[in-house]
């Protein structure tokens, strides 16, 4: 059953295109892959001359809601997870994206755009785990 009440095809497509444009700009102008977990992870293994661009990108990303807020009201968000869940989830995401060499952006967008078999496998794995986890939490436990 499709949730028509929350379905936002146009704004989601527009946002997706914007993410694609940012990915394309970073690739063509800077010669780099816009994979968020890789960019942030690299800051924890600092190499001289390889830090500035990472900080600049993260600053832009983190500043986005401030810029958006100047133009329009920020969309309402809802975080259901409690503190303990957020901590476990954060640890899993941090460890998983580094061992798996990427997240939704690195594998899901950049990797799939290159039709990389490695990224197809990783994307299939994290989507599957996401579906199963939500099924367990929403339909089996509660």
């Amino acid at each position: 059953m499709i949730d028509l009440e929350h379905f936002t095809p146009w704004s989601s497509l527009a946002g997706g295109l914007l993410i694609g444009v940012a990915t394309a700009m970073f690739l063509l102008f800077n010669g780099r892959i816009a994979g968020i977990s890789g960019i942030v992870g690299g800051l924890l293994r600092p190499i001289a001359g390889d830090i500035g661009w990472r900080i600049a990108f993260v600053a832009g990303l983190a500043g986005a809601p401030l810029v958006y807020g100047l133009a329009a009201g920020l969309p309402l968000v809802h975080v259901d997870a409690d503190i303990a869940t957020l901590v476990v989830a954060g640890l899993l995401v941090g460890l998983g994206t580094r061992y798996g060499s990427g997240c939704t952006s690195g594998h899901g967008v950049c990797g799939l755009s290159q039709l990389s078999p490695r990224s197809v496998a990783a994307t299939a794995a994290f989507m599957l785990a996401g579906f199963v986890t939500v099924f367990i939490v929403r339909h089996l436990i509660v």
Binding site: V79, G96, T97, F126
Partner: peptide
Amino acid sequence: LGALAFGAGWGLAGYCPG
């Protein structure tokens, strides 16, 4: 295994890194 762990965390909180 890394991607599976990431997916589980993503499903738990609804956040990925970006």
